[in-house]
């Protein structure tokens, strides 16, 4: 793999955003994800290659470490920020069509629930996996999901709930989506949600951590 991409992947894995960012201390003063993504493009590396050979594998490593509880949310957020700083250089190529996303993913925390940390982590990981993410925020009712589905046909849907009491709203939204869009893939997550509950409400996949969701989406397009 290109040496610049190797360094870029390391910056994302360890959350090195740019040259001036002090974290991590052992990379102080070195170029970060921001500079290296720019450098890679200037050196003629294709945006697709940057995505496939640096951003996606680095975020997979981060997701795996989080699943194994080797890192906590703060390290993951730093990696996501580093990834975003690299992604900012690639976004114009998505817009021009030169680089293709793997698909669209609509995500939101269900009605009556305002917990967004878990939802945000999943959104970041999936964006890092090469998908376009449409984030409906928190307290997202069924109508909001249905409107987004109409605007982004064929998107995969993700619903999050952190309260046992808002799982009922998750069920209602899933069933309303199923009624109109039987073929769409629906992922669910959140601390009280389980595989059994996922099956019971007619969703397609439950993952206890963000990387599981990324892996599932990867399978869908492989």
């Amino acid at each position: 793999m290109n040496e610049i991409l190797e360094r870029l992947a390391l910056c994302i894995e360890f959350g090195k955003i740019n040259k001036t960012s002090p974290y991590p201390p052992n990379m102080k003063g070195q170029d970060g994800a921001d500079e290296l993504a720019k450098l890679a493009l200037n050196e003629g590396v294709k945006p697709d290659e940057i995505l496939e050979n640096a951003l996606i594998p680095a975020m997979e490593i981060v997701g795996g470490k989080y699943s194994r509880k080797e890192i906590y949310v703060p390290q993951m957020l730093m990696s996501a920020k580093a990834m975003n700083s690299a992604l900012a250089h690639i976004k114009p190529f998505f817009q021009s069509g030169e680089t293709k996303r793997k698909g669209k993913f609509i995500i939101g925390t269900v009605a009556g629930d305002l917990h967004d940390i878990g939802k945000n982590l999943v959104a970041m990981m999936i964006e890092g996996g090469g998908w376009e993410v449409i984030d409906l925020g928190v307290d997202a009712g069924t109508d909001k999901f249905l409107k987004a589905i109409n605007e982004h046909p064929g998107a995969v849907i993700g619903l999050s709930a952190l309260l046992t009491t808002t799982m009922e709203n998750m069920k209602n939204t899933v069933s309303a989506i199923r009624e109109k869009h039987a073929d769409l893939k629906i992922l669910v997550g959140g601390a009280p949600v389980t595989t059994d509950y996922c099956k019971k409400i007619g969703a397609d996949f439950y993952s206890p951590d963000p990387q599981g969701a990324v892996n599932y989406l990867k399978q869908l397009v492989s």
Binding site: G112, D113, L163, T164, T165, T166, E168
Partner: peptide, 10 residues
């Protein structure tokens, strides 16, 4: 609190 232990947030 509403929202926990089965008590609906409404």
């Amino acid at each position: 609190s509403p929202g926990y232990c089965g008590w609906d947030v409404v």
